Lab assay of single mutants.
Amino acid sequence: STVKVRLGHLEVTLHNVSEEDVRELRELWKNGADEEDLRRWLEEWKK
C-alpha cells in the first residue's frame, strides 16, 4: 500500500510499504532521528 508519512516538516510517500516499515520509521523519528538518519533509512529501504 502507499502511505504518506509526516515527520516534522518532512513528508514522505512510501509505495509498497508494510505497516511494520512505517512503524519502524516512526520509531526512529520518535527516538530523535534527524532527517539524515531518515534519508539513510529510506535509501536502505528502497534497495
Results as ranks from 00 to 15, higher is better:
25 L>V: 02
47 K>G: 11
39 R>T: 08
28 L>S: 02
42 L>S: 01
10 L>E: 13
40 R>N: 12
24 E>R: 14
25 L>Y: 03
33 A>T: 05
34 D>I: 08
22 V>L: 15
13 T>K: 03
31 N>C: 05
18 S>N: 09
6 R>P: 02
29 W>C: 11
4 K>I: 15
24 E>F: 13
41 W>L: 03
15 H>A: 06
6 R>M: 13
22 V>C: 08
43 E>N: 06
14 L>Y: 01
27 E>K: 07
24 E>W: 09
45 W>S: 03
21 D>Y: 13
1 S>E: 11
41 W>C: 02
9 H>N: 15
6 R>D: 03
22 V>A: 11
40 R>C: 04
13 T>R: 04
14 L>E: 00
41 W>Y: 02
9 H>F: 10
33 A>C: 06
25 L>R: 00
30 K>A: 15
17 V>E: 01
5 V>E: 01
44 E>Q: 12
35 E>T: 08
3 V>D: 01
12 V>D: 01
43 E>R: 03
12 V>A: 04
5 V>C: 02
36 E>Q: 13
23 R>M: 12
21 D>F: 14
44 E>I: 07
46 K>D: 10
20 E>A: 12
22 V>G: 02
19 E>V: 10
26 R>K: 15
26 R>T: 14
40 R>T: 08
27 E>W: 03
6 R>K: 13
32 G>P: 02
34 D>G: 14
38 L>R: 01
23 R>K: 13
32 G>N: 08
31 N>W: 03
39 R>V: 12
13 T>E: 10
30 K>P: 05
46 K>E: 12
34 D>Q: 12
28 L>I: 11
13 T>L: 09
26 R>C: 10
35 E>R: 03
27 E>N: 07
12 V>I: 14
28 L>Y: 06
17 V>L: 12
30 K>M: 14
3 V>A: 03
33 A>W: 08
18 S>L: 08
31 N>L: 05
13 T>I: 14
30 K>Q: 14
14 L>D: 00
11 E>I: 10
30 K>I: 15
34 D>T: 14
10 L>F: 14
5 V>K: 01
9 H>I: 11
27 E>Q: 06
7 L>A: 04
38 L>C: 02
27 E>A: 05
18 S>Q: 07
23 R>S: 09
41 W>K: 02
21 D>V: 10
38 L>D: 00
8 G>W: 01
18 S>R: 08
16 N>L: 05
46 K>Q: 13
35 E>P: 08
17 V>N: 01
6 R>S: 11
5 V>Q: 01
12 V>L: 11
21 D>P: 01
22 V>M: 15
11 E>N: 11
31 N>T: 10
23 R>G: 07
43 E>A: 06
35 E>Y: 12
11 E>D: 09
4 K>P: 02
5 V>L: 14
30 K>W: 09
41 W>S: 01
21 D>N: 08
18 S>F: 05
20 E>H: 11
19 E>C: 07
47 K>D: 07
37 D>Y: 08
38 L>I: 09
26 R>S: 13
46 K>T: 13
22 V>D: 02
45 W>I: 09
46 K>F: 15
20 E>K: 13
22 V>E: 09
10 L>G: 07
29 W>Q: 15
46 K>G: 12
4 K>D: 03
5 V>I: 15
46 K>H: 14
11 E>P: 01
2 T>A: 07
39 R>M: 14
17 V>D: 00
13 T>Q: 05
15 H>S: 07
26 R>Q: 14
15 H>E: 08
36 E>A: 12
42 L>H: 02
3 V>F: 01
13 T>A: 04
15 H>T: 11
26 R>A: 13
22 V>Y: 14
39 R>E: 08
25 L>P: 00
47 K>I: 06
42 L>W: 10
7 L>F: 13
22 V>T: 04
27 E>R: 06
2 T>E: 06
11 E>M: 10
9 H>R: 13
4 K>H: 10
39 R>C: 04
37 D>G: 09
29 W>L: 15
27 E>H: 04
